[in-house]
Design a protein around this nucleic acid. Structure first.
Length: 155
DNA sequence: GCCAACGTTGGC
DNA sequence: GCCAACGTTGGC
């Protein structure tokens, strides 16, 4: 089983929004980045766990945990002309973009701000969230980093 | 295949 | 709102 971090702007979709969904599940749609698409397709599996990260907001932070509730499948918004994520170049018989379903697990005891994670640079060496210029909305998390971050949350 | 221009992300 | 970093596009 693998661990991940997935970003969302809370003004758009927050962890509370996920917790309020029927069955606490939602499709993680709208990803339009090939690297993330490939991670969905090749590496992410149902049953994996992911941190929910709030980005582009007053206090960017890891706020909770969700479970990957499906394997990758075509993102329906790419075929919807009314969607902000519509991609006219993608064809249903050859979908370009994938999504997974996610299911709320729990919030952390407290949000762990990015600024606080940076104080643990040494323990979290190699964690791509802390790399400058990182813009991927889905990031793999090494098991030891996952455990370490949970330790910060409990402290 | 190169690379300049442009658009987007996301922290601050 | 600014700007650095990065991805994508398109001309050649």
């Amino acid at each position: 089983m693998a661990y991940w971090l997935m970003k969302s702007e809370p003004d758009c979709f927050s962890i509370d929004d996920l917790a309020a969904r029927p069955r606490r599940r939602e499709g993680w749609d709208g990803v339009r980045n090939y690297q993330v698409r490939n991670m969905f397709r090749d590496q992410m599996k149902q049953g994996d766990l992911a941190f929910f990260y709030h980005s582009s907001c007053a206090v960017p932070a890891i706020v909770g945990i969700m479970k990957i509730a499906s394997n990758a499948y075509p993102d329906p918004t790419q075929f919807d002309p009314k969607s902000d994520h519509y991609d006219p170049k993608s064809r249903p018989e050859e979908p370009r973009w994938l999504q997974v379903d996610v299911e709320f697990q729990r919030k952390l005891e407290r949000p762990i701000p990015l600024s606080e994670l940076r104080e643990h640079e040494q323990a979290l060496a190699g964690f791509k969230l802390l790399a400058t210029g990182n813009r991927l909305s889905v990031i793999p998390v090494r098991p030891e980093h996952w455990d370490y971050i949970l330790g910060i949350a409990d402290a």
